[in-house]
Design a protein around this nucleic acid. Structure first.
Length: 421
RNA sequence: GGAAAGUUGGCAGAGUGGUCGAUUGCGGCGGUCUUGAAAACCGUUGACUGUAACAGGUCCGGGGGUUCGAAUCCCUCACUUUCCGCCA
């Protein structure tokens, strides 16, 4: 959520910046400012009335205490005259506040000045590409490899749960476990605290990181207990710091966690959902940082370098994209996407998205820290995947396939206990 | 699922109708002492809103009510803990 202070001080600038995300915020901003003014004037009015009443109540108390009952009773008659007005104004104030909040919540985060212009994925800027792209000739797609070597049973998943819930078997399952340990080891070695959060969250948490109200339909909802299955570990991990006031010394906070992730993916179809490309349940290891504003972009670079290091160790061809304004998520101020090359499909698959949310989530979360001047200030939050399993697995299978099997990337061999499939 | 008790500042924990926005301890910050640190001692320290700045207002889990006046009384909802039951 963009803070009202920012809008009050720089309305024009906010409108300009949001245009990068292809949002015309002009009307909403002017509504917000108008409501803000009304809100404050109502507040002043009601506050004055309350001040009067408070003062009289205090006087009455003193009079009773000193035994001056008659005078106290007389004074009592006068109080309460304004009560109805106060009630009305309070209601009006709450109404305005609610309207303002809704409008503020409807605005996406302000993109950073270095965000590339553009509307579509095609407008994203490739900032780096690494590794050789293996020619597709004679390569099997991962879903065929998966069934040929009995690694993943998609049909069985259909029976047990439904499409998008594969069953990993044998060396396939073992490879998943290897990835899990490898990723977490990499992250903890880089200073991220290993964390196991719940994989369901309550409504407050879903609001905190911005899944609600915008993406309600994308989450599995356990209505009986009003809990949401997490679409990413970002939600529970970041919500650890909801309603928290940190000391500056505690920053930066770096945590990592493995969780399954659940996404309804309503509306997805076609080759997008083939094999491991897009699932309803998948595994992911996430990294999250809470930072001082002045350090958050250095932290973003650090996270990018970290994810890049992991992909290098896996020796997978990858590219890093700076997302353009139109392709960025609602809450992000700057996002780098990592894509690995799926050799048989001849396409790039997103395996990580590393974002700086600046104070956008922190404002919703009420995540603040006491700075060196003793003032409370919103922190910056960042997160990224390191990494998402299914597409990494798909690319390992496709890129490492040989005429009679699949080689295991060297770094994973100790984790797997075998060097080929 | 049954029963009981709780929810108060960064944390712990007092406070049952009137200078209580809240005793105290810990923590934080500043200082004294010390070559330095620790300990000890002294001082200081809630959040939000609002204002040019003061003032003012709101907040003791959420919402509603009683009262001139509510952290304190009433209603309601949520959550937490403990015990019993069930169970990995």
């Amino acid at each position: 959520m963009i803070s009202i202070q920012t809008i009050r001080e720089n309305a024009e600038w906010v409108i300009e910046r949001l245009a990068i995300k292809h949002i015309d915020a002009k009307t909403v901003i002017s509504q917000i400012l108008e409501i803000d003014e009304q809100r404050r004037s109502v507040q002043k009015e009601v506050d004055d009335l309350k001040a009067q009443n408070n003062k009289m109540a205090k006087e009455i108390g003193m009079l009773f205490k000193s035994g001056n009952t008659s005078e106290a009773n007389a004074l009592k008659e006068n109080v309460g005259v304004a009560k109805e007005t106060i009630k009305k104004l309070d209601a009006r104030f709450a109404e305005l506040e609610g309207e303002q909040l809704n409008l503020l919540l409807s605005l996406p985060n302000i993109p950073h000045e270095k965000v590339p212009q553009g509307k579509l994925p095609a407008d994203n800027v490739t900032v780096k590409q690494s590794g050789n792209l293996r020619p597709a000739d004679g390569l099997l797609p991962h879903w065929e490899l998966a069934s040929k070597y009995n690694l993943i049973d998609f049909e069985l998943g259909n029976k047990i749960a439904g499409a998008g819930f594969p069953v990993y078997r044998g060396k396939g399952a073992r490879l998943q476990r290897a990835l899990l340990n490898f990723f977490l080891d990499q992250n903890t070695a880089a200073g991220y605290e290993e964390t196991q959060p719940p994989i369901v969250v309550n409504e407050d948490s879903a609001y905190g990181t911005g899944q609600l109200p915008d993406k309600e339909g994308q989450m599995y909802h356990v209505t009986e207990d009003n809990l949401y299955l997490i679409p990413t570990a970002e939600v529970p991990l970041t919500n650890i710091y909801r309603d928290v006031l940190l000391n500056e010394k505690e920053l930066p906070i770096k945590i990592t966690g493995y969780t399954p992730c659940f996404r309804r993916e309503a509306g997805s179809y076609g080759k997008d959902v083939r094999g491991l490309n897009r699932l309803h349940q998948f595994d992911k290891v996430e990294i999250v940082q809470v930072q001082k504003p002045e350090d958050s972009y250095a932290a973003l670079d650090e996270m990018v370098a970290h994810v890049e290091g992991i992909l290098n160790k896996l020796q997978l061809p990858y590219r890093i994209l700076a997302l353009c304004g139109g392709d960025m998520s609602f809450a992000s101020a700057f996002t780098y996407d990592f894509e690995v090359y799926s050799a048989a499909q001849e396409r790039w698959l997103e395996v990580s998205s590393v974002s700086n949310f600046e104070s956008f989530q922190a404002n919703r979360l009420k995540l603040r820290y006491k700075n060196s001047e003793g003032k409370n200030q919103l922190a910056h939050t960042l997160n990224g995947s390191s990494l998402a399993f299914p597409r990494i697995l798909a690319c390992i299978l496709e890129n490492y396939q040989t005429y009679d099997g699949i080689k295991i990337p060297d770094v994973l061999v100790p984790y797997c206990g075998f060097d080929s499939i």
